[in-house]
Design a binder for these strands. Structure first.
Length: 532
RNA sequence: GGGCCCAUAGCUCAGUCAGGCAGAGCGACUGGCUUUUAACCAGUCGGCCUAGGGUUCAAAUCCCUAUGGGCCCGCCA
């Protein structure tokens, strides 16, 4: 097979042949909960950024928070009476829903920035309101206003939509009602760097500065940002990519108005949530990124994005398939002789700032439930199972697993170790009772720590009449045990019944090593005597 | 109406840029570890690469067309 090049390296290759220095940019409007789909954008950008660095480049990586955009409407998660008055105002200028953040925008932005940290993504974060307020857009605003007609013509040609007579590439913030989407531009003064307007909504007329007095409309602002930041590559969702969409118009505005070459587009597909369809804030199909990071180890989430080409749909299902995803990642990470391509995916999934426990997620699912979620017990079990790790890292994964079990795990993956002998123990047969007693003796008699294989072996030795456990069973049963009852299935079942109150569970040897030996001895003896 | 993306094993997908033996993981099945349980190891099964045409010595790959699915063209990635 010919060597496969990872998509991020393909993009990086193309970028380096086109540009001497590359600037990756990405931007999201923090108008609502930022979800896992948005994370694809920054992770896609991060992949290309890493690939460029691996090629010896020194690229820049910006994350632009479009917090100067207006609040479009009162979203379902907002209170009508609180936010109706703020519709149309820039989200950087309206109050935070919880009162803990500087602004509405920061309320959603801050958790997202924290999530990027968790995932090992470190772009230079810029807020659009700060760029405007610092005057970075002044030149672009002047250029746009002077070329208003040419831009309007491009927009009409590209999008096929008629541009309104009173359209302007600049949206002033009305000083009367503070809205950014209602005032009509009536003129501008290039030397004074001001724009004058009439606001039909509140009747105000006035003059605002090009520095912080308003913003360019999206289709013009995007190419302006390319020029101002020198963007050479940018991932964006397919909504911008369609013909007549904002990338199309952006190309022409960039070249014809700003005299600047547009960035290399990296179009990515949407993440579908299970069977529910596309992730979308408005339809309510949404898993916020913090919800996701509560459950998925960061490297596994990176892995999901890295292994899939951007233009492919990703089906994300936080139930059983999530377990498989994490498992797949762990297997690949720990693979002895991975291919170059596999190594590449793993290395892009890792980040030096992100640590993930070596304990397989699946095993943690068992450990966690054995320990009943108690962190000290989990640490102890992990040690006993041979994982010598920083408790902090173990606890992080335990936290993930606990929430996963609580929120998404399918019922067959769940079990609970009963605090006392479960009532189901009443149904144990005499042979099973004899087995439990004999088994407890074996555990007690063990002169060393029993490993998973040892435990499995002891159970299977019941089939051998000469084995110590068989002899003890006969003793306890008070006579010879009928051959048809010597069935390991019976015995495993007894073990699960005594601990869980159900006839099956995680592979016994590995399951039992998660427990303290003396606890098992007591429990098995009790269960063997249990009569309601 | 205009456009974009996707379609490869039961499932999830690599492989398409740059044409050269049809691939991986999971699942299933079989076996191994003195051993039916959600661990481990080895192996097997599994595909008209959605369909039809074209280019080529050679096509999953490039070019047309069709079908199915997803989506965009009102500032939701």
């Amino acid at each position: 097979m010919t060597e496969i090049t990872h998509w991020a390296d393909v993009v990086a290759e193309e970028a380096t042949t086109k540009n001497k220095k590359n600037v990756i940019s990405t931007g999201i409007t923090p108008s609502g909960h930022i979800h896992i789909g948005n994370m694809r954008e920054v992770l896609t950008a991060d992949a290309v950024y890493c690939a460029l660095k691996n090629k010896g480049e020194e690229p820049d990586f910006f994350y632009i928070a479009d917090n100067y955009d207006p609040l479009r409407k009162v979203y379902p998660f907002l209170k009508e009476e609180d936010y109706a008055q703020h519709v149309g105002k820039p989200i950087s200028e309206i109050p935070c829903p919880c009162g803990q953040h500087k602004s509405y925008a920061d309320h959603f932005l801050e958790p997202f920035i924290a999530a990027m940290e968790t995932l090992g993504i470190h772009p230079e974060v810029k807020r659009t309101d700060e760029l405007y307020k610092a005057g970075k857009f002044v030149d672009a605003i002047k250029t746009a206003l002077k070329n208003r007609d040419a831009i309007a013509k491009i927009l009409e040609e590209v999008s096929g939509k008629e541009v309104q007579e009173d359209w302007s590439p600049f949206n002033p913030i009305c000083e009367g009602c503070k809205r950014i989407n209602s005032a009509k531009v009536t003129g501008f003064d290039e030397a004074e760097e001001t724009v004058s307007y009439d606001c039909p909504a509140c009747g105000t007329s006035g003059k605002v500065s090009m520095t912080g007095g308003g913003k360019l409309t999206w289709r013009v602002e995007w190419p302006a940002k390319w020029k101002i930041l020198g963007v050479t590559a940018e991932p964006f969702g397919k909504d911008h990519a369609s013909s007549g969409g904002s990338y199309d118009s952006g190309i022409r505005i960039s070249r014809e108005i700003f005299n600047n070459e547009p960035p290399l587009p990296i179009v990515y597909e949407w993440i579908m949530l299970g069977e529910k369809g596309a992730m979308s804030s408005s339809s309510g199909v949404v898993v916020s990124i913090s919800d996701m990071l509560d459950v998925v180890p960061p490297e596994a989430l990176r892995f999901l994005i890295m292994k899939t080409r951007p233009e492919k749909h990703i089906k994300f299902d936080p139930g059983q398939p999530l377990l498989n995803l994490v498992d797949e990642y762990e297997r690949l990470r720990d693979k002895e002789e991975p291919s170059e391509f596999e190594k590449r995916i793993v290395s892009l999934s890792q980040s030096k700032d992100v640590k993930q426990s070596k304990i397989p997620f699946k095993q943690m699912v068992t450990i966690y439930q054995v320990a009943g979620g108690d962190l000290d017990k989990i640490d102890a079990i992990a040690k006993r199972s041979g994982f010598d790790e920083d408790p902090e890292i173990i606890n992080l994964m335990a936290h993930n697993v606990g929430l996963w079990l609580d929120k998404y795990a399918p019922s067959f993956a769940k079990f609970g170790v009963k605090d006392t002998v479960p009532v189901q123990a009443a149904s144990l047969t005499n042979t099973q009772r004899a087995f439990l007693k004999a088994f407890a003796d074996e555990l007690l008699a063990a002169d060393k720590e029993l490993g998973p294989e040892d435990i499995q072996r002891i159970v299977y030795e019941t089939k051998e009449p000469a084995s110590p456990i068989s002899k003890k069973m006969e003793e306890y049963a008070g006579g010879e045990i009928p051959a048809e009852e010597i069935d390991t299935k019976n015995f495993f079942s007894a073990i699960y019944t005594a601990l869980l109150g159900q006839p099956s569970g995680p592979k016994a040897g590995w399951f039992l090593t998660s427990f303290d030996n003396s606890f098992l001895v007591v429990r098995f003896k009790e269960a063997a005597e249990y009569r309601p």
